[in-house]
Amino acid sequence: MDDERQTRFEVVYRETYERILGYAVRRCHSPEDAADVVAETYAIAWRRVADLPGGDEARLWLYGVARNVLANHRRGEQRRHARQIALEEDIAVFFPSPEETQELRAIGHVFRSLSVDDRELLSLVAWEGLDAGEIAHVLGRSRNAVRIRIYRARKRLSHALEDAGLGFTRNRTAEIQAGRPS
């Protein structure tokens, strides 16, 4: 029985680890934080192995756990590091940022001006490649509600980019993509 649970957990772990690691790395400011989020996510999954779904649902379920872990982490971080934001920004240069160009930095700035919820929705679509149905799973909401929220978040991002003089055509996006070292 225990062996069966362990085997199941190990299979899920191997199949999802890179996705959860990616999720954490993309959202954390430091390698330490990312490592913490991954470790805590799987520690919770192990404690709740009886609830762990199989197949691709496991990945979505784990995104949901990681999301909560990250949220708790951020709350703790805000308390601890309220006065250390400048320092963190300095340290962040050691954690490679994707925002290598002025334009990408400007886009990043605009993106971070959105609400946490908008950012998370857009990230789940663009970074994790999830569709509305899958995101509904992760967030525990209905598919329709998620669709509407994604639609609105996209609109808010477009407007914010235009306001910042960063209204993008497809070509300009392609230029930036081509300009990144692969």
């Binding site: 772990y13 990616g22 857009l122 994790e128 996209r154 993008f168 990144r180």
Partner: peptide, 22 residues
């Protein structure tokens, strides 16, 4: 769509670059 491509550019790392980490 454009917003999605734009957000994608901000990803620190893409999952396919993590292949083998598991």
């Amino acid at each position: 769509n454009t917003t999605e491509e734009t957000v994608s550019l901000l990803a620190r790392v893409h999952d396919d670059a993590l292949s083998g980490q598991a």
